[in-house]
């Protein structure tokens, strides 16, 4: 399992992460970011891609 943390004081809900890891991140009906705090190891590459494309660099994988 990997643990994911998003710094919601930084997040501006741009939603770039949703495209890279749709199983972990989504924009809700109010266009606000929601995410799962853990994910299977098989999601690591996708979550790393989400970390990389976040304009605010607000996503962290907690190892």
């Amino acid at each position: 399992m990997i643990k994911i943390n998003v710094d919601m004081t930084k997040c501006q809900h741009y939603g770039m992460c949703v495209f890279e890891a749709p199983n972990v991140f989504k924009l809700n009906t109010d266009d606000k970011l929601e995410y799962t705090a853990t994910a299977e190891d098989s999601e690591r590459a996708n979550v790393e891609a989400a970390v990389d494309v976040c304009p605010m660099q607000a996503i962290f994988i907690v190892d």
Partner: peptide
Amino acid sequence: IGLRSVVQGYR
């Protein structure tokens, strides 16, 4: 400005 889902849709 705002309306992220709409803007993301252009991808």
